[in-house]
Nucleic acid binder design. Structure first.
Lengths: 187, 187
DNA sequence: CTTCCTGGCTAATCGAGTTAGCTTTTAGCT
DNA sequence: AGCTAAAAGCTAACTCGATTAGCCAGGAAG
């Protein structure tokens, strides 16, 4: 029988794509096996377990996400940087729902490699906020506020929670602008 | 054999409590059966399926949540009402992680009963914002902003995502105060 | 006292994850 | 070109959780 030519990285990539299509929770070894053209048990030659697959997707997703965010904010500062960051955040989350969900999985205790990629996005977030010259504690407050708000918005939107017909992008802009105003006033 | 004296409502309640302890995703029919002192298949005399159990927990949770929110905000208006609402939101979500997760499950299409209880909290949210006299569209923006932010904050906090040692309650207060400022300015 | 519904039980099925053990490809060497 | 061993597939089989089928006892209604 001809080899499928798989590599662990290819399996993770296919898993990420599949998770975007069917949802991270509905990602199954059988489904992924079918997708890559192999019988289920054969997948175990490339990933240790379903848990390991999820972790792999998560780490890959965190990295891709951080790159997208960094790319969006580069070369800008202050409010413009925050808006760019926020827009990239929402767009990426909506385009890659499965990956985004994987992004939210906290690293297992002691998983340094995972922690490292998880911190990437946070670092970018702090960099974006650096231009506001906030004092230490306030910068942490601001980072938490922005992160919470963007995450909450994107995840509620993805869940279809915004039923009213008011334009969602307008609401998002309002939210981000409001937070920015808070960052500027409360130096 | 002595009857366990179960009723569907008691099973749902026990399920909700168990979900708070082990997490909604780890709630299993076997675990719940053990908790209520019965063999697994016997549960099916009270709930149709695991999905139905989750739905039941979700509806019960949505109702309890709405009551807690309403109770917190009653008799107050403007910024004080928002702070009270926000504090109750966070406290409830952290105290009842399993129920809170159940709260986030969107109703199935056509499930009117579920939609109704789901709308309760939203209505309270709009009531809380009513005092700001915002124009129609802006009120929707504000509601979405507040809801997103509170949900995002609570769910990230519950996931242990706030590692830095800055006091989390302070950050929360900052977030809420910032949003309120935005509601007041942008009339 | 008899009936019949109810709620509990055991046995059995099904699907998803995972393991064991066999076989075939194919890279790397001679 | 031929040989060898690791790699990558496969089938069979096991475990666990959800669910169904069918049996049985308790106790309420008459």
């Amino acid at each position: 029988m001809p080899r499928a030519g798989l590599a662990p990285a290819a399996v993770i990539e296919a898993g990420a794509a599949l998770a975007d299509e069917v949802g991270l929770d509905n990602l199954t070894m059988g489904l992924l096996a079918e997708r890559v053209g192999v019988r289920t048990p054969s997948l175990y030659k490339h990933v240790e377990s379903l848990g390991a697959l999820r972790r792999g997707i998560g780490m890959r997703a965190k990295t891709e996400f951080a790159v997208a965010l960094a790319r969006a904010a580069v070369g800008q500062s202050g409010p413009a940087a925050v808006h760019a960051f926020a827009d990239a955040y929402r767009a990426w989350a909506l385009e890659h729902p499965g990956r985004y969900a994987a992004t939210l999985r906290a690293p297992e205790a002691g998983d340094e490699e995972d922690r490292k990629v998880s911190d990437e996005s946070i670092r970018i977030l702090f960099d974006v906020l650096a231009g506001f010259g906030l004092p230490e504690d306030r910068a942490v407050d601001a980072a938490r506020a922005l992160r919470s708000s963007l995450h909450g918005f994107a995840s509620l939107e993805a869940a279809g929670a915004f039923g009213l017909d008011r334009d969602v992008s307008e609401s998002y802009r309002f939210l981000v602008a409001t937070l920015i105003a808070g960052f500027e006033v409360r130096t």
